[in-house]
Amino acid sequence: MSACTSRSEQALALRLVELTQAGLPLVDDPWVWLAEQLQLSVEATLALLKRLQADGAIRRIAAVPNHYRLGYCCNGMTVWDVDDSQMPRLGRLIGAQPFVSHCYRRPRSGDWRYNLFAMVHGRSSAEINSYREHLRYLLGDACRADDMLVSSRILKKTGLRLPTGP
């Protein structure tokens, strides 16, 4: 994953990805199961997980809920045309809001004027509209225009799969 890791570490990391990217089996001790699969000690497996997380290859190790099934049926991709000079401060501010799951700066392009994207989630369209209003208030005069793109249909959504072949 990073340049400083050895070839064997990379091979182990790749195997770990293959074993866990669809989720751990619900066994009594998932790390013991993983250690057996990797043919490592539990200590070495835990150390590998911690290294990959410190390195940034693993974002988090967690219980990931299915938000749609929990009633969070509405998502809105809010997009904002934000003054470039204020983006570092405002990007962090918007990304820190508890109802935002993703917040990215992206380039403007042709007739696409928006440079800040924040995904908001809620249980109704009224709820996500109120979140959009709150973001608009936080951005204030630094925002020249905004929009919210509501998903009408999910056409494809698969868990992320790393390419495992050459």
Binding site: R60, R69, L70
Partner: peptide, 13 residues
């Protein structure tokens, strides 16, 4: 019940 997507590492693709 489908309310847990999965438990385990989330990778940075």
């Amino acid at each position: 019940r489908g309310s847990l997507s999965r438990i385990g590492p989330v990778f940075d693709h």
